[in-house]
Amino acid sequence: MTSAQTHTENGAQTDGKPVAHGADNGHLHKYGMVIDLDKCTGCGACMVACMSENNVPFRDDETDKLTSITWMRVYKLTNGKPYPDNDVCYLPRPCQHCEGHAGHSPCVSVCPATATDYSTETGIVSQIYTRCFGCRYCMAACPYHARYFNWWDPVWPDGMEKYLSPNVSPRMRGVVEKCNFCFQRYQLAKDKVYVDGESTVSEEAYQTACTQACPAGAITFGDLNNPEHLVHQLAQPDDHHHGHPRNPNAFRLLERLGTNTKVYYVSSREWVRRAGDNYLPDEQTGGGGH
């Protein structure tokens, strides 16, 4: 039911043209993530996995977090209560891959040069560094601060450039970069699908580096359109309500802004769920959405 729904929606968007691409013929994926905040320990493995997978550069002082490129960033949330009733929760924040309304995510629609794009095939918000000319409008548009600017030339200490992955193009100074759900892994998985003569990329064949690395198993990744994928089962997205999770413990960041993100968070703690969005004092957590 879910995928049928999306087929119709996307079909309408693309003027009825068949949306099909090679090996993934007929499959409209909506890749997304479910992060269990009760399991997340804030260890930072996802951040390092991301940096090492995606050729993210580093500088000798990375303590100014406003210029430090971390596609995946783990935020520390607190319940704001005084000692000893204080509670904390860690929240890993990759790019939320907003779908917005019909793929018009906050950042995609504002890019003047089409350097960032929303794909209806995967639901991934892409970023093409060589197209980007560094106006940073997308950064101004993103409420999650998921976009990072290369303020400096990336420089690796002599010899360290040897660990750079050929599947991810290193960025030059002056462009914006962000998490792309390790799209290179989808590209490679699709290549494999071609030579194996299969029809579609399986759940195991395409997992992001952070999902794979998470030692607590807090991150789940897969196709939200596919009821067989774990992410679908965990988040239970309601396609009639822009993917609003039906799992009562699940929430999305700033859902009320209409960003329609594809990263779901799960927590059993009410204060954590409430921290996921802005509420007026008299509003109920999870309420107020569309």
Binding site: C43, A45, V48, S52, P157, D158, M160, Y163, P215, G217
Partner: peptide, 20 residues
Amino acid sequence: VNQGGICPLGLAGLQLLYGP
């Protein structure tokens, strides 16, 4: 031991291998 998981230090091991 780790069932596929890995910690930040283990992930950054190549920076030790190629490090200055």
